[in-house]
Simulated assay, not measured.
Amino acid sequence: MTDTPAPHHGRYAYSALPDRPVYDWPGGKRLAVYIGLNLEGFDFGLGLGAELAPGGPQPDVLNYAWRDWGNRVGAWRIKDTLDALRMPASVLVNSRLYADCPGLIEAFRARGDEIVGHGRTNTERQGDREEAEERALIAEATAILTAHEGKAPKGWLGPWISQSHRTPDLLAEAGYTYLLDWCHDDQPTWFATRNGGRILAVPYPQELNDIPAIVARKETGQQFADALVEAFDEMLEQSRTAPLVMGIALHPYIVGQPHRLRPLRRALAHIAAHRDEIWLTTAGGIADFATESGTAL
Rank of each mutant, 00 (worst) to 15 (best):
L157G: 07
D181I: 05
A225C: 03
L261P: 05
K29M: 13
V61A: 11
P57C: 13
L200T: 06
I144F: 04
W160H: 14
D276S: 12
P88T: 04
L48I: 02
K151W: 05
E230S: 11
P5D: 10
P258E: 11
H259K: 03
D83H: 08
G55N: 01
F224S: 06
F42K: 02
T281H: 04
F108T: 00
W69I: 06
T142H: 07
I105G: 11
E134D: 12
Q206I: 13
E237M: 13
L264G: 05
L179R: 06
N71M: 03
Q187Y: 13
T123F: 05
E106D: 15
G119P: 03
G10L: 04
Y98W: 15
G112Q: 06
T193W: 10
P57L: 15
T2Y: 12
G45P: 02
H251A: 02
G47D: 12
G45S: 01
P26E: 08
D185Q: 10
S164L: 12
A272P: 00
R240I: 01
V255H: 10
E51Q: 15
A89P: 07
V61G: 00
A53R: 07
R111P: 03
T220N: 11
G285H: 09
D181M: 07
M246S: 03
G70H: 10
E237C: 10
A267D: 14
F289S: 02
Y12E: 12
V22A: 12
T123A: 15
Q222W: 08
H184N: 09
F42E: 03
Q257T: 14
T220V: 07
K151T: 05
R11T: 05
A242Q: 11
L180H: 07
R266Q: 14
L52E: 12
L170N: 03
L264N: 11
T121C: 09
T282F: 15
G221V: 09
Y176H: 14
G285C: 09
A84V: 10
V33H: 02
P7N: 06
V229G: 02
A99I: 01
F42R: 00
A242L: 08
A50K: 03
A136I: 10
K151M: 01
A242N: 04
Y98D: 10
K151E: 13
V229E: 05
G119L: 08
R194M: 08
G127I: 03
E124V: 14
L157D: 09
L236Q: 15
V93S: 08
E140W: 10
T177Y: 08
A201Q: 13
A147R: 01
A65H: 04
A132Y: 09
L37W: 08
R72N: 14
N38S: 09
E40T: 02
A141C: 09
G10V: 02
G28R: 02
G70K: 03
E106Y: 13
V245G: 11
G155W: 03
A269F: 05
A174N: 04
K154A: 14
E230M: 07
Y12W: 14
A267E: 15
